[in-house]
């Protein structure tokens, strides 16, 4: 992984068809910290993620990873800089096997040019086998060891979600955006995913997660921010000691558009 950095969202707004879906949001997601984002449906949480990943252009404001400016860059470039994302509905390559899916994540695109392909397999097979080993490991971490040779499209919804997460492990991100990771997963699988996210945070990754499951939020998050109607309406630090953290310390409260 590249060196840890925090993700800074600086006065970001997003307009879609004249509606301001994200309104002047400023927040820092520090490296090594798991931040939860909660809020009602339509609050703009996923839209905020879209702006960070570059899928939606910010109408105003800037997103930075460390000192690097992310806004304005194409999504694939942002991904290369170390921003990984788990989508609400799993995204994967249907015609590749589960193993190949994760292998693709472990590789960085070396030997994928058309010119190198003419010389393959003389060139690049070593990187391939290293990536394959790593991919196999990640699949085991997610409990998908037996499904490696199945086509990704033949997996169940929950397995596909776990597959996406295995890919994220392969990418070794600096910042991880999880959009409702526990939705559709069994309790065990959800714990596995969140546990692995925690260990990524321990390695310095800035983990951000959108969740409706309050239990998951209180168990796995260090900080929680709340969004409503596109605005950031509150944030608090969760004390690690007690699960019943709502009575815990109030760090700071932001309302409306104040920076």
């Amino acid at each position: 992984m590249l060196e840890p950095s925090s993700m800074t969202v600086d006065q970001v707004s997003l307009d879609i068809s004249g509606v301001r879906v994200v309104s002047n949001v400023s927040v820092v997601f520090p490296a090594g910290v798991v931040t939860g984002i909660i809020g009602p449906n339509g609050a703009g949480k996923t839209s905020l993620f879209n702006v960070i990943s570059g899928l939606a252009p910010a109408s105003h404001g800037e997103v930075r990873l460390g000192n690097l400016r992310l806004t304005g860059q194409p999504p694939f470039q942002i991904a290369r800089l170390g921003v990984a994302r788990l989508f609400q509905t799993p995204h994967f390559f249907a015609t590749l096997t589960a193993l190949a899916n994760v292998q693709l994540a472990c590789l960085r695109g070396e030997s994928e040019s058309w010119a190198t392909s003419l010389l393959w397999p003389l060139v690049g097979s070593r990187a391939e086998s290293v990536a394959r080993e790593e991919a196999t490991r990640h699949l085991s971490q997610l409990g998908l060891a037996k499904s490696g040779d199945m086509l990704a499209s033949d997996l169940s919804f929950g397995q596909q979600k776990l597959l996406s997460f295995a890919g994220i492990l392969g990418v070794r991100p600096r910042c991880l955006l999880l959009d409702e990771p526990t939705a559709g997963l069994s309790r065990d699988a959800a714990d596995r995913v969140l546990g692995l996210s925690r260990s990524l945070a321990r390695e310095g990754c800035a983990v951000v997660l959108i969740e409706h499951n309050r239990n998951a939020v209180s168990r796995f998050c260090d900080t929680v921010v709340e969004m409503e109607r596109g605005r950031l309406v509150g944030s608090r630090v969760i004390s690690a000691a007690t699960p019943d953290s709502r009575a815990g310390s109030e760090c700071s409260s932001h309302t409306g558009g104040s920076a």
Partner: peptide, 12 residues
């Protein structure tokens, strides 16, 4: 394109 695309950028 031709049609009003109502789907979100991050969905299939």
């Amino acid at each position: 394109g031709l049609f009003v695309v109502s789907s979100r950028p991050d969905s299939p």
